[in-house]
Nucleic acid binder design. Structure first.
Lengths: 204, 204
DNA sequence: CGCATTTTTGCCGATCCGGCAGAATCTTCG
DNA sequence: CGAAGATTCTGCCGGATCGGCAAAAATGCG
């Protein structure tokens, strides 16, 4: 039972985050004040601060929400499925933007590009990655019967997956001509689960 | 030929960073103002800002310097050595604190603990990791004859190694009773280079 | 020593940041 | 429905951050 309150809160949060993304894409982070974002979202500056500590956090929030869904999706995969298979599917489902058939939301793509490009956003992005990794580690631990507190394994897997997604994203943004995201993700994860052997020859 | 100028500049930088670490360990990040750090290091607050954008950056700077050395060390490894062997040695050399024989610097350990513990430092730490990963990726690319711009491989490896070091560090800090860092690092990297297979049974 | 270059510093306005308390809004319960 | 209770929004405010600017100090060089 989600009351009106919860819903409005989430609405405000998303409105603020989207406003922050739009404005930062438009003017660059240096040209955006917290006040501007608050106004764009129709709340006071003080309210902005009730939701986010910094402008960068607001920008990164949409990315965080997406990232956290990987763990959700992993838990949703059938129990019998091998871990890396499940991880690949989970990541593909939640991050496989830019498929050949459906064009991704241009605002979102511009937003991601800004997040990767603007140095002022890197901190928040990395913090996002860390949070997502922790959540994913818990899901991996549950699936593999390990303990995040005692075993190195789940956090290692989570961090490695995060690294793979990050590397794939960066590569995807740079790609010219554009390539679909899905295959890049699959390639990165497959390499990971094969132990990252040195590429034998030119595999351009 | 490094002039007096260069040397003094580096000295000031390190003095500021160490001062920041000491004070943050002592009072927590919330209890430290930039002004305090500047005073402790014997320079003006404005000068602090010539070196670091934020207090957190100053704290993380020693860690950054260490992290960048992994790439140096990798380049120093013999060319014939397999990549993962070289990576393991490089990481072990630069990060293998807490060996059974020599106790690590307590101030440094407390500093690392603070960096991992204090949420206010996470952003700077992650930024550090990202910078180090980029540098390491370049070294990996050189060694494997790949191109960081075109190939996914070097960044993927660098990010994965960073993840392994991070997971090992976190685990090391939590370990009670304390365990030496070296073996943890080796374990993490070996698992990586074996494709992170699911742990078969209880391997407590 | 005297000049060129680089670094340090004080000054200052814009902005950030978060505690506080009252107003506004939603929720629960009689 | 209406009042009490809980939560959120907002204005106010002072301390701290942040970075541009130009004068002063330190360093390097001929």
């Amino acid at each position: 039972m989600v009351g009106l309150r919860e819903r409005k809160k989430l609405e405000t949060r998303r409105a603020l985050s989207w406003a922050a993304i739009r404005l930062v894409v438009e003017r660059g982070i240096a040209g955006v004040r917290v006040e501007d974002v608050a106004e764009e979202a129709g709340v006071s500056e003080r309210t902005f601060r009730n939701y986010f500590a910094t402008l960068a956090d607001a920008v990164a929030d949409r990315h965080l929400e997406r990232s956290l869904q990987i763990a959700d999706e992993l838990r949703r995969r059938p129990a019998g499925e091998p871990l890396w298979e499940a991880l690949r599917r989970a990541v593909e489902t939640r991050f496989g933007l830019g498929a050949a058939d459906s064009a991704p939301d241009p605002v979102w793509v511009a937003g991601v590009r800004a997040m990767v490009t603007e140095p002022g956003l890197h901190g928040a992005m990395q913090k996002t990655a860390a949070t997502a990794a922790e959540t994913l580690a818990a899901a991996v631990a549950d699936r593999t019967g390990t303990d995040p507190e005692r075993d190195l394994y789940p956090k290692l897997v989570a961090a490695a997956v995060g690294a793979a997604v990050g590397a794939a994203t960066e590569h995807w943004l740079r790609a010219d001509p554009p390539v679909p995201m899905g295959p890049l993700l699959v390639e990165a994860l497959d390499r990971l689960s094969s132990g990252l052997p040195e590429p034998s020859e030119e595999d351009a």
